[in-house]
Protein backbone atom coordinates (compact mmCIF):
# COMPACT_ATOMS: atom_id res chain seq x y z
CA UNK A 1 0.00 0.00 0.00
CA UNK A 2 1.33 3.41 -0.93
CA UNK A 3 -0.04 6.92 -0.38
CA UNK A 4 -2.05 6.78 -3.62
CA UNK A 5 -3.94 3.76 -2.34
CA UNK A 6 -4.56 5.33 1.07
CA UNK A 7 -5.96 8.47 -0.56
CA UNK A 8 -8.70 6.39 -2.13
CA UNK A 9 -9.82 5.60 1.42
CA UNK A 10 -9.99 9.22 2.56
CA UNK A 11 -13.39 9.86 1.04
CA UNK A 12 -15.23 6.91 2.65
CA UNK A 13 -13.27 7.61 5.84
CA UNK A 14 -14.78 11.10 6.04
CA UNK A 15 -18.24 9.66 5.37
CA UNK A 16 -17.76 7.02 8.07
CA UNK A 17 -18.15 4.34 5.43
CA UNK A 18 -14.72 2.74 5.74
CA UNK A 19 -14.52 -0.75 7.20
CA UNK A 20 -13.14 -0.93 10.75
CA UNK A 21 -9.89 -2.68 9.81
CA UNK A 22 -9.15 -0.27 7.00
CA UNK A 23 -10.08 2.67 9.16
CA UNK A 24 -7.49 1.67 11.75
CA UNK A 25 -4.87 1.10 9.05
CA UNK A 26 -5.58 4.48 7.50
CA UNK A 27 -5.41 6.31 10.81
CA UNK A 28 -2.10 4.64 11.48
CA UNK A 29 -0.84 5.84 8.09
CA UNK A 30 -2.15 9.36 8.60
CA UNK A 31 -0.23 9.55 11.86
CA UNK A 32 3.07 9.15 10.07
CA UNK A 33 2.34 10.71 6.64
CA UNK A 34 1.85 14.52 6.68
CA UNK A 35 1.13 14.59 2.91
CA UNK A 36 -1.90 12.34 3.25
CA UNK A 37 -2.91 14.26 6.37
CA UNK A 38 -2.85 17.46 4.35
CA UNK A 39 -4.90 15.79 1.64
CA UNK A 40 -7.47 14.80 4.26
CA UNK A 41 -7.71 18.41 5.44
CA UNK A 42 -8.30 19.58 1.85
CA UNK A 43 -11.12 17.11 1.43
CA UNK A 44 -12.64 18.25 4.72
CA UNK A 45 -12.58 21.84 3.45
CA UNK A 46 -14.25 20.77 0.22
CA UNK A 47 -17.06 19.00 2.05
CA UNK A 48 -17.45 21.98 4.37
CA UNK A 49 -17.81 24.32 1.40
CA UNK A 50 -20.67 22.16 0.10
CA UNK A 51 -22.43 22.58 3.38
CA UNK A 52 -22.18 26.34 2.94
CA UNK A 53 -24.15 26.28 -0.31
CA UNK A 54 -27.47 28.04 -0.26
CA UNK A 55 -30.53 25.87 -0.58
CA UNK A 56 -32.15 25.88 -3.99
CA UNK A 57 -35.76 26.97 -4.16
CA UNK A 58 -37.85 25.39 -6.89
CA UNK A 59 -39.60 27.85 -9.22
CA UNK A 60 -43.10 28.67 -8.05
CA UNK A 61 -44.60 27.90 -11.45
CA UNK A 62 -43.02 24.46 -11.75
CA UNK A 63 -46.27 22.64 -10.98
CA UNK A 64 -48.18 24.80 -13.47
CA UNK A 65 -45.59 23.94 -16.11
CA UNK A 66 -46.05 20.24 -15.37
CA UNK A 67 -49.80 20.62 -15.88
CA UNK A 68 -49.20 22.39 -19.19
CA UNK A 69 -46.91 19.67 -20.41
CA UNK A 70 -49.32 16.95 -19.37
CA UNK A 71 -52.09 18.67 -21.32
CA UNK A 72 -50.11 18.26 -24.53
CA UNK A 73 -50.58 14.69 -25.65
CA UNK A 74 -48.46 13.04 -28.30
CA UNK A 75 -50.09 13.31 -31.72
CA UNK A 76 -50.30 9.58 -32.23
CA UNK A 77 -52.17 8.95 -28.98
CA UNK A 78 -55.66 9.77 -30.29
CA UNK A 79 -55.11 7.33 -33.14
CA UNK A 80 -54.74 4.54 -30.63
CA UNK A 81 -57.38 5.78 -28.23
CA UNK A 82 -59.76 3.03 -29.30
CA UNK A 83 -57.34 0.36 -28.17
CA UNK A 84 -58.82 -1.27 -25.06
CA UNK A 85 -55.51 -2.07 -23.36
CA UNK A 86 -53.58 1.16 -22.77
CA UNK A 87 -50.39 -0.64 -21.78
CA UNK A 88 -50.27 -2.23 -25.22
CA UNK A 89 -50.48 1.02 -27.14
CA UNK A 90 -46.75 1.39 -27.33
CA UNK A 91 -46.34 -2.19 -28.48
CA UNK A 92 -48.96 -1.76 -31.17
CA UNK A 93 -47.41 1.47 -32.41
CA UNK A 94 -44.03 -0.22 -32.51
CA UNK A 95 -45.38 -3.24 -34.36
CA UNK A 96 -47.09 -1.06 -36.96
CA UNK A 97 -43.92 0.97 -37.45
CA UNK A 98 -41.79 -2.14 -37.87
CA UNK A 99 -44.27 -3.57 -40.35
CA UNK A 100 -44.32 -0.38 -42.41
CA UNK A 101 -40.54 -0.16 -42.43
CA UNK A 102 -40.35 -3.80 -43.49
CA UNK A 103 -42.84 -3.33 -46.31
CA UNK A 104 -41.03 -0.28 -47.62
CA UNK A 105 -37.47 -1.39 -47.07
CA UNK A 106 -37.67 -4.95 -48.36
CA UNK A 107 -38.37 -4.15 -52.03
CA UNK A 108 -35.74 -1.43 -51.96
CA UNK A 109 -33.22 -3.75 -50.37
CA UNK A 110 -33.91 -6.57 -52.81
CA UNK A 111 -33.67 -4.20 -55.72
CA UNK A 112 -30.38 -2.65 -54.71
CA UNK A 113 -28.75 -5.62 -53.00
CA UNK A 114 -28.95 -7.86 -56.08
CA UNK A 115 -25.97 -7.68 -58.39
CA UNK A 116 -26.57 -5.49 -61.37
CA UNK A 117 -26.12 -8.28 -63.86
CA UNK A 118 -28.99 -10.23 -62.37
CA UNK A 119 -31.25 -7.31 -62.96
CA UNK A 120 -30.39 -7.42 -66.65
CA UNK A 121 -30.58 -11.18 -67.00
CA UNK A 122 -34.20 -11.57 -67.95
CA UNK A 123 -35.82 -10.86 -64.60
CA UNK A 124 -37.37 -7.63 -65.70
CA UNK A 125 -40.61 -9.18 -66.84
CA UNK A 126 -41.26 -10.36 -63.31
CA UNK A 127 -40.54 -7.06 -61.69
CA UNK A 128 -43.21 -4.81 -60.42
CA UNK A 129 -43.76 -1.35 -61.81
CA UNK A 130 -42.15 0.11 -58.71
CA UNK A 131 -39.10 -2.07 -59.18
CA UNK A 132 -38.76 -0.94 -62.75
CA UNK A 133 -38.89 2.67 -61.75
CA UNK A 134 -36.21 2.24 -59.13
CA UNK A 135 -34.06 0.32 -61.63
CA UNK A 136 -34.37 3.12 -64.11
CA UNK A 137 -33.52 5.75 -61.53
CA UNK A 138 -30.50 3.80 -60.34
CA UNK A 139 -29.27 3.36 -63.90
CA UNK A 140 -29.76 7.03 -64.66
CA UNK A 141 -27.78 8.07 -61.62
CA UNK A 142 -25.01 5.66 -62.63
CA UNK A 143 -25.00 7.13 -66.11
CA UNK A 144 -24.86 10.60 -64.66
CA UNK A 145 -21.74 9.64 -62.73
CA UNK A 146 -20.21 8.14 -65.82
CA UNK A 147 -20.92 11.20 -67.88
CA UNK A 148 -19.12 13.30 -65.32
CA UNK A 149 -16.03 11.16 -65.74
CA UNK A 150 -15.89 10.94 -69.51
CA UNK A 151 -16.87 13.48 -72.07
CA UNK A 152 -18.27 11.09 -74.64
CA UNK A 153 -18.56 13.57 -77.46
CA UNK A 154 -14.89 14.45 -77.20
CA UNK A 155 -13.99 10.78 -77.01
CA UNK A 156 -15.96 9.83 -80.11
CA UNK A 157 -14.67 12.81 -82.02
CA UNK A 158 -11.14 11.74 -81.30
CA UNK A 159 -11.92 8.23 -82.42
CA UNK A 160 -13.68 9.19 -85.64
CA UNK A 161 -10.73 9.27 -88.11
CA UNK A 162 -9.73 5.71 -87.26
CA UNK A 163 -13.17 4.16 -87.61
CA UNK A 164 -13.68 1.30 -90.08
CA UNK A 165 -16.17 1.80 -92.83
CA UNK A 166 -19.42 0.11 -91.99
CA UNK A 167 -21.78 -1.44 -94.51
CA UNK A 168 -24.70 0.77 -95.04
CA UNK A 169 -26.59 -1.07 -97.76
CA UNK A 170 -29.24 -2.48 -95.51
CA UNK A 171 -29.71 0.48 -93.32
CA UNK A 172 -33.34 1.06 -92.80
CA UNK A 173 -34.46 4.48 -93.63
CA UNK A 174 -36.42 5.71 -90.71
CA UNK A 175 -37.78 9.05 -90.13
CA UNK A 176 -38.30 10.38 -86.70
CA UNK A 177 -39.87 13.78 -86.95
CA UNK A 178 -38.73 16.09 -84.25
CA UNK A 179 -35.77 14.01 -83.17
CA UNK A 180 -33.10 15.55 -85.32
CA UNK A 181 -31.52 17.95 -82.89
CA UNK A 182 -31.70 16.13 -79.60
CA UNK A 183 -29.86 13.38 -77.94
CA UNK A 184 -32.57 11.07 -76.78
CA UNK A 185 -30.92 8.14 -75.07
CA UNK A 186 -33.05 6.44 -72.51
CA UNK A 187 -33.54 3.17 -70.75
CA UNK A 188 -36.71 1.18 -70.93
CA UNK A 189 -37.81 -2.42 -71.22
CA UNK A 190 -40.06 -1.74 -74.18
CA UNK A 191 -37.61 -2.65 -76.93
CA UNK A 192 -38.90 -5.02 -79.58
CA UNK A 193 -36.68 -8.04 -80.04
CA UNK A 194 -37.02 -8.77 -83.74
CA UNK A 195 -37.14 -5.27 -85.13
CA UNK A 196 -33.49 -4.60 -85.89
CA UNK A 197 -31.06 -4.24 -88.75
CA UNK A 198 -27.90 -5.37 -87.04
CA UNK A 199 -27.31 -8.07 -84.48
CA UNK A 200 -24.13 -7.65 -82.50
CA UNK A 201 -22.88 -9.96 -79.79
CA UNK A 202 -20.87 -7.78 -77.50
CA UNK A 203 -18.56 -9.65 -75.12
CA UNK A 204 -18.13 -7.52 -72.02
CA UNK A 205 -16.63 -8.01 -68.55
CA UNK A 206 -19.63 -6.52 -66.82
CA UNK A 207 -23.06 -6.04 -68.35
CA UNK A 208 -24.17 -3.21 -66.19
CA UNK A 209 -20.96 -1.31 -66.70
CA UNK A 210 -21.22 -1.97 -70.43
CA UNK A 211 -24.73 -0.55 -70.46
CA UNK A 212 -23.54 2.51 -68.64
CA UNK A 213 -20.65 2.91 -71.06
CA UNK A 214 -22.97 2.58 -74.01
CA UNK A 215 -25.29 5.17 -72.63
CA UNK A 216 -22.37 7.51 -72.21
CA UNK A 217 -21.33 7.03 -75.83
CA UNK A 218 -24.82 7.51 -77.17
CA UNK A 219 -25.78 10.47 -75.07
CA UNK A 220 -24.17 13.15 -77.23
CA UNK A 221 -25.48 11.67 -80.48
CA UNK A 222 -28.60 13.49 -81.66
CA UNK A 223 -31.49 11.13 -82.22
CA UNK A 224 -29.81 8.13 -80.60
CA UNK A 225 -31.92 5.99 -78.29
CA UNK A 226 -31.28 2.92 -76.24
CA UNK A 227 -33.80 0.51 -74.78
CA UNK A 228 -33.32 -2.61 -72.76
CA UNK A 229 -35.02 -5.88 -73.52
CA UNK A 230 -33.97 -8.43 -70.94
CA UNK A 231 -30.25 -8.89 -71.48
CA UNK A 232 -30.40 -7.31 -74.92
CA UNK A 233 -30.06 -3.69 -75.78
CA UNK A 234 -31.86 -2.16 -78.69
CA UNK A 235 -29.97 0.84 -80.00
CA UNK A 236 -31.32 3.27 -82.52
CA UNK A 237 -28.91 5.79 -83.91
CA UNK A 238 -28.29 7.70 -87.12
CA UNK A 239 -26.71 5.44 -89.69
CA UNK A 240 -23.77 7.74 -90.12
CA UNK A 241 -22.78 7.12 -86.50
CA UNK A 242 -22.73 3.32 -86.78
CA UNK A 243 -18.96 3.12 -87.38
CA UNK A 244 -18.46 5.33 -84.39
CA UNK A 245 -20.49 2.96 -82.29
CA UNK A 246 -18.56 -0.10 -83.50
CA UNK A 247 -15.29 1.53 -82.55
CA UNK A 248 -16.61 2.54 -79.19
CA UNK A 249 -17.89 -0.96 -78.45
CA UNK A 250 -14.42 -2.35 -78.97
CA UNK A 251 -12.97 -0.07 -76.35
CA UNK A 252 -14.91 -1.94 -73.67
CA UNK A 253 -14.86 -5.71 -74.25
CA UNK A 254 -14.88 -6.91 -77.84
CA UNK A 255 -17.28 -7.79 -80.62
CA UNK A 256 -17.98 -11.54 -80.57
CA UNK A 257 -19.97 -11.31 -83.80
CA UNK A 258 -21.67 -8.80 -85.98
CA UNK A 259 -24.27 -9.58 -88.60
CA UNK A 260 -26.91 -7.96 -90.67
CA UNK A 261 -30.28 -9.42 -89.95
CA UNK A 262 -32.18 -8.02 -92.90
CA UNK A 263 -35.28 -7.59 -90.81
CA UNK A 264 -36.61 -4.22 -91.55
CA UNK A 265 -39.26 -2.82 -89.45
CA UNK A 266 -41.75 -0.20 -90.34
CA UNK A 267 -40.39 3.02 -91.65
CA UNK A 268 -41.33 5.12 -88.74
CA UNK A 269 -41.10 4.52 -85.07
CA UNK A 270 -44.51 4.77 -83.56
CA UNK A 271 -45.50 8.02 -82.07
CA UNK A 272 -46.30 6.47 -78.71
CA UNK A 273 -42.76 5.25 -78.37
CA UNK A 274 -41.54 8.70 -79.06
CA UNK A 275 -43.83 10.06 -76.43
CA UNK A 276 -42.54 7.56 -73.90
CA UNK A 277 -38.98 8.49 -74.62
CA UNK A 278 -37.48 10.60 -71.88
CA UNK A 279 -34.69 12.92 -72.79
CA UNK A 280 -31.54 12.99 -70.70
CA UNK A 281 -30.03 16.01 -72.33
CA UNK A 282 -31.13 19.50 -73.06
CA UNK A 283 -33.04 20.51 -76.16
CA UNK A 284 -31.41 22.39 -78.93
CA UNK A 285 -34.06 25.03 -79.10
CA UNK A 286 -34.97 24.14 -82.69
CA UNK A 287 -38.64 23.45 -83.33
CA UNK A 288 -39.42 19.83 -84.32
CA UNK A 289 -40.80 20.80 -87.71
CA UNK A 290 -37.66 22.67 -88.61
CA UNK A 291 -35.24 19.89 -87.76
CA UNK A 292 -33.65 17.77 -90.49
CA UNK A 293 -34.86 14.18 -90.85
CA UNK A 294 -32.37 11.56 -89.65
CA UNK A 295 -31.94 8.00 -90.93
CA UNK A 296 -31.98 5.62 -88.00
CA UNK A 297 -30.31 2.25 -87.78
CA UNK A 298 -31.71 -0.29 -85.34
CA UNK A 299 -29.10 -2.46 -83.69
CA UNK A 300 -29.66 -5.27 -81.27
CA UNK A 301 -26.80 -5.72 -78.86
CA UNK A 302 -26.58 -9.02 -77.07
CA UNK A 303 -24.39 -8.73 -74.03
CA UNK A 304 -22.36 -11.87 -73.45
CA UNK A 305 -19.71 -12.37 -70.80
CA UNK A 306 -16.18 -12.03 -72.08
CA UNK A 307 -13.67 -14.85 -71.53
Amino acid sequence: MDCQDYRQWLSPYLDGALETARRAELEQHLGRCPTCGSELDCLKQLLASFKGLKAVEAPRDLLAGVHEKLAVKPRWKPLLAWWPLPRLQHSLALAVTVLLVFLVATPLYLQHALPGRLRLAGTLNKQTVADRKSTREADRSAVGERRKQVSSSEFLSAMAPRLPQAPVAKIAERQRPGEGGDSDVFFSEAGRANDHDRLIRWAVPDRVQATVQLHGWLSPIPGATMTTHGDRLIVRLPASRYPTLLAALQTYGHLASEQETGQKAEANVKADELAATSSVSGTSGVSPAARPVESLLVIELQLVPSE
Binding site: R7, Q8, W9, L10, S11, P12, L43, L46
Partner: peptide, 15 residues
Protein backbone atom coordinates in the same frame (compact mmCIF):
# COMPACT_ATOMS: atom_id res chain seq x y z
CA UNK B 1 -17.38 4.60 -3.02
CA UNK B 2 -14.58 4.48 -5.54
CA UNK B 3 -16.20 6.95 -7.93
CA UNK B 4 -17.09 9.34 -5.14
CA UNK B 5 -13.54 9.24 -3.85
CA UNK B 6 -12.12 9.87 -7.31
CA UNK B 7 -14.65 12.61 -8.03
CA UNK B 8 -13.91 14.50 -4.80
CA UNK B 9 -10.17 14.42 -5.39
CA UNK B 10 -10.70 15.62 -8.94
CA UNK B 11 -13.07 18.37 -7.84
CA UNK B 12 -10.68 19.54 -5.16
CA UNK B 13 -7.88 19.69 -7.70
CA UNK B 14 -10.10 21.76 -10.02
CA UNK B 15 -11.06 24.17 -7.27
Amino acid sequence: KSRLSRARLRLKALV
